[in-house]
Each structure stands twice: as C-alpha cells, then as structure tokens.
Amino acid sequence: MAEVLDYFRKERLPSIWCPGCGHGTVTGALIRAIDKLGLDKNNIVMVSGIGCSSRAVGYLDFDTLHTTHGRAIAFATGVKLAKPNLKVIVMTGDGDCAAIGGNHFIHAARRNIDITTIVMNNNIYGMTSGQYSPTTPHGMLGTTAPYGNVEYAFDLCELAKAAGATYVARATSYHVTLLEELIEKALQNKGFSVVEAMTQCPTYFGRKNKIGGAVELLNWIKDGTINVKAAAALPPEKREGKILIGELHRSERPEYTASYLEMTSKVQRTYNDYKGGNRGCELNSD
C-alpha cells in the first residue's frame, strides 16, 4: 500500500480549507479507496466544479480538471465519452451538484455514464460565506436565510436513484471507514455512481446555527444519521428524522459509453467503405 500523501501534489498543501472542514476527510477516504483498488494514477481524471469541495482536485496528483460552477459532470461526460478507458471521478459539493449543476447530475444518472460522483454535502455554500443551499434543512439558518430556511432540502440519494444512477450510497465524515468502503464499491460500479458524503462546515453552518465547531458538528451528524441495515430492524418511530447511511441503491443497467461504442462499431461495420475524407483520427485515437 502506497502512502496516502503519494497521491497528493504535496507542494500545494496545506489546503485552503478552514480548520475542521470535512472536505479533507472525504478526500482522504477517496484516496484510500483508490489505493486499495490499485487504480492506475495515470488513468484517473478528477473533475470538479466550483466551491470549497471542488478545490480538492487541485491537491491531487492525477489529471485534474477544475471547471466552472455546476458543470463538473458535463465536463466529465465529455472526458468519459471521448476516452471511455479513463476512470472519471467527479468531486463536487451540494450547491455545485444539486443547485446550479442539478440538470447535469440527473441527466448523467439517466444516461448511466460510468462516472463516480462524490458529493460533499455540508448543507451550505461555504466559499461564498454561508448562504443556504438546496440541502440546507428546513428551518436552519444561513446568511441568506436569517429567519430560518423556508425551503425544503433535496434528498440527493433519492434524487440520484430516481434519475437512474446504478449505485447510490451515503456516508459521513464521521463514519470514515464506511465512507471509504462505499467509495470503493462506487468506483467498482460500471455506471453512474453517487456517494453523498455528509460533511461539516464549522465556519459557517456550525457557527450560524449555533451547533458549534467541527467536533460538535460531527456529533450532530452522528446523532442525525442511522445505518440503513440497523434502521431496517427498528420500528418507524425510532427512525423518524434520521438520515439513512450505507449502501442505498444498486441496480444493473447498460452503461452509456459501452452502449455508444457498441452502436458505433455496428455502424462502422455497415459503412466500412465510408470515404468521408482523409480523417487522421488515428493520430489521437485511444
């Protein structure tokens, strides 16, 4: 097993994240999962959008793509379809993925394109200093929800499942071993996989909502969640208000790039005498 730091651009550490921010914890779990699976560094492309969580890719020693706000999955779709042999991983946040990038998220799930998406959900927009996000629970505070959030939150896992993702799981920055295990499974799924990593923003979410610092937030997350296996054995009243963690959904469906390539090879067999000009595609082909 390689050292975790071998996967980092060490000269860029320490990160810009605030003390106690959970994004680094999630990044660490992802790296350990990659290491465990023995994936080739040169074959991984990490894509992110904009926000605190999206800064993660800049510290990692892969081909990394830090894109525009909300568009990580769309960029990743281009990378994956262009070179299906690459392992494409998206690191995104709740605002980046579910608000501005919601459309790309559901359509990638619908296509079942082989992209592993890690959504770091800290229930708030951290980079812009604490506005409420699509996952801020109803009634909680943000700098743009000074009287409590009037809106209701998305359940990202239910959303991904309904849209057609073939692997959906949730863990937290408290349940780190579970998180690592679920990311490992997500990376192995051939299709669109989503791991929602609930994480803490002590600087804005914790402070604004008077929950406290990183430790208090982690306890708050721990108390607010229940493992899906344990929940199955509990009566409904004991599960109420708790967020389920663990593997939430798994299904089998043809993967998009594989289906596309299958169609392409069929078409090519039919049109193998096509003479649309001297192409030169071979120069850049896989």
Binding site: V4, L5, F8, L13, P14, S15, W17, G20, C21, G22, H23, G24, T25, G28, A29, R32, S173, Y174, V176, T177, E180, A214, L218
Partner: peptide, 13 residues
C-alpha cells in the same frame, strides 16, 4: 487509525 482517517488535513498518521 480514527485520528488519521478523520483528520481533514493529512496531518497525523
């Protein structure tokens, strides 16, 4: 390893 795994800054191993 809980300290190591939960550390957000890769500061302890």
């Amino acid at each position: 390893h809980m300290c190591e795994y939960r550390c957000p800054d890769f500061a302890i191993e």
